[in-house]
Design a protein around this nucleic acid. Structure first.
Lengths: 127, 127
DNA sequence: CTTCTTGCAAATAATTTGCACTCCA
DNA sequence: TGGAGTGCAAATTATTTGCAAGAAG
């Protein structure tokens, strides 16, 4: 994989962001430093980085794919009332994956986990 | 929620399917019994049923949302080489959710878990 | 009746692709 | 220099919405 200015810029933006970002969001943040970059370049490289396992996809179940550096990827608890997101730091899957690999013969590469519910404030509003 | 012929038909198709189905797939299977039904009706009702917790969304990470009856919903291990899907029957999250609810104050409603990897055949091809 | 639903057509939104040109290795 | 990478514009794909007509309670 060639090392281009655009690729470095995309990875930098994601490294500097505390939150996972969508392609559009990455694109917007690059407006200042890389005004000529095309949105399609962002899309192409985000996907490329995923298959190289440099990035992980975070799918929150709205129609938008978000990305974060693979090392920092986590899971989220999302409020179905107000879309508030809470990061879940410890991931219960490492132990599961081991057994799964043994049972199925798959070599596990990644996973995606999102939990939905009502935050305390929205749960209150319901009733 | 009113009980319409279309709604019953959508639920029936999903009950009869062993696999989660996308809106398009549901629509296609309804061509015979409900030839006049509009695709938008399918979309609207699938989403409606999800918010009533009659259906669950299964997101496999391609751009398509699939649905299955809430009671039967499971998780999948998907091959990134050939898209083969293996159902994971036991779900490691019930235990996690309890603690999470306590820590965050959220009332948990649902979750989505998908695991990616290479199936034995595709893992072999790589090397 | 009258409100919730549907069918249809048109509108979005996110993402992908074709192609000629550019730039890293 | 040769092929991977980029920008641009156009094409897809999945999904959503507005609205008038239809059916459920």
């Amino acid at each position: 994989m060639k090392n281009t200015r655009q690729r470095a810029a995309i990875l930098r933006v994601l490294d500097e962001s505390a939150e996972p970002l969508s392609a559009e969001e990455v694109f917007t943040r690059l407006r200042e430093t890389e005004p000529a970059m095309a949105l399609s370049t962002v899309y192409r490289n985000l996907e490329r980085f995923c298959s190289e396992n440099l990035l992980a996809r975070d799918d929150f179940g709205d129609g938008v794919v978000r990305y974060s550096p693979a090392r920092r990827h986590g899971h989220y608890l999302i409020c179905t009332g107000c879309d508030a997101r809470v990061r879940i730091d410890d991931c219960p899957l490492s132990s599961l994956e081991e057994g799964l690999a043994r049972e199925t013969g798959f070599s596990i590469e990644s996973h995606s986990l999102t939990i939905y519910g009502k935050c305390p404030r929205c749960a209150g509003k319901d009733k």
